[in-house]
């Protein structure tokens, strides 16, 4: 993923960060996430409660919660793809380099 622009973020140990990506679920495309070193960053998908149903074609944003688990540095890649189609290049990839530091740094 050398051609992916990597956004750099710094988190203190134990901190959490919500990453919100524009959703494309109504088109069959969804964001997937891969963490280079999962022992440093944990990821959970957040499902938000929506008060109103969406019109046809409108997609909900996708929200991922990143948690700093251990000190270190890792890449987090978000890839937009259809998980029911044969493996191929994702439609879009976004990257993040996350540095986890001690709480007092």
């Amino acid at each position: 993923m050398s051609n992916v622009v990597m956004e750099e973020r710094r988190l203190r140990l134990g901190a959490r960060l919500d990453v919100t990506l524009q959703g494309y679920g109504a088109t069959g495309f969804r964001w997937g996430v891969v963490v280079e070193k999962p022992e440093i960053i944990g990821v959970a998908r957040i499902v938000e409660d929506d008060p109103e149903p969406r019109v046809a074609g409108e997609s909900a944003d996708e929200v991922f919660e990143l948690t700093a688990l251990t000190v270190g540095e890792t890449e987090v890649l978000f890839a937009l793809a259809r998980n029911f189609e044969a493996a191929g290049p994702p439609r879009e990839v976004r990257g993040m380099r996350v540095v986890v530091t001690e709480p007092h740094v």
Partner: peptide
């Protein structure tokens, strides 16, 4: 999201119970 991988081999898809959390319009 569970619709994405559903309906293979003519299987019948049943949507989740009431509520719209995390749903898209399609």
């Amino acid at each position: 999201p569970d619709l994405d991988k559903s309906c293979k081999d003519d299987a019948v898809y049943t949507p989740p119970a009431n509520g719209t959390a995390g749903s898209d319009g399609h």
